[in-house]
């Protein structure tokens, strides 16, 4: 199993995402923003950071990178894609997920260990969780407040496409406490919290985040 991890200029959590992939037992494959080539990977992680400095708008420039054209094409064929933080913002900008991420309600960057509930397990990235599981994963961002038109939110809620929800204090004012969502087919998942920073208790608050990466192994092999 080979999982690609994209690096844009300004990507920060690519090494972490690659480590999470390895911990899950897969091979991490580095993908470069400028190459329109997915190198035959079985899944893709779009990691966190500040691609292009978040200039213009978080994710707005990265979506035009040659590699993203390939990602969009491959998603039509069912390629599992996980967007974390800036990666989630990029997937929204690329039209692979609905909605947008706005500046945090408190106007500050927020980094804290966040409790989440796993709302949907029928996705490529959450199949290994128990439905309703409560997990602890770091959240760290400036623009994490999920928003969308009410009709879109209704659709997401109605179709059970809210994958993760904040528990306890909402860190950024996200609509409906939404922390992560998926595409209709559950192959594309985006979330603001960082599962790649919760792969062991030595460097993270828990090992809960690792399960996203082990889940996708099952989903691809299945």
């Amino acid at each position: 199993m080979r999982i690609g991890v994209i690096t844009f200029p300004g990507t920060l959590d690519d090494a972490d995402a690659a480590r999470a992939v390895r911990y899950a037992g897969a091979e991490a494959v580095a993908l470069w923003h400028g190459d329109a080539d997915l190198r035959g990977v079985d899944a893709v992680v779009v990691p966190g950071g500040f691609s292009y400095g978040d200039y213009l708008r978080a994710g707005a420039i990265a979506r035009f990178a040659p590699v993203m054209g390939e990602v969009v094409r491959a998603v039509r064929g069912g390629l599992p894609v996980l967007g974390i933080c800036n990666g989630f913002q990029i997937l929204c900008e690329a039209g692979l997920l609905p909605g947008a991420l706005l500046r945090n309600a408190g106007l500050h960057f927020v980094c804290r260990d966040q409790r989440l509930r796993v709302e949907r397990t029928s996705t490529a990235w959450t199949g290994g969780f128990e439905a309703g599981a409560e997990i602890v994963v770091p959240v760290k961002n400036m623009d994490g407040r999920y928003t969308a038109e009410q009709s879109t939110v209704d659709e997401l809620e109605g179709e059970g496409r809210v994958v993760f929800r904040y528990l306890g204090a909402n860190p950024n004012g996200s609509l409906g406490d939404i922390a992560g969502i998926s595409s209709a087919d559950g192959r594309v998942v985006g979330l603001m919290p960082h599962p790649e920073h919760a792969i062991d208790e030595l460097t993270g608050p828990s090992a809960d985040g690792l399960r996203l990466f082990t889940s996708v192994l099952g989903s691809v092999l299945a």
Binding site: L12, D13, A15, D16, R19, H108, F109, V110, C111, R112, P138, K140, H194, E196, H197, I199, T203, G204
Partner: peptide, 9 residues
């Protein structure tokens, strides 16, 4: 909380 303490893992 305004500083990222996790990046680089």
């Amino acid at each position: 909380e305004q500083y990222d303490r996790y990046v680089r893992g």
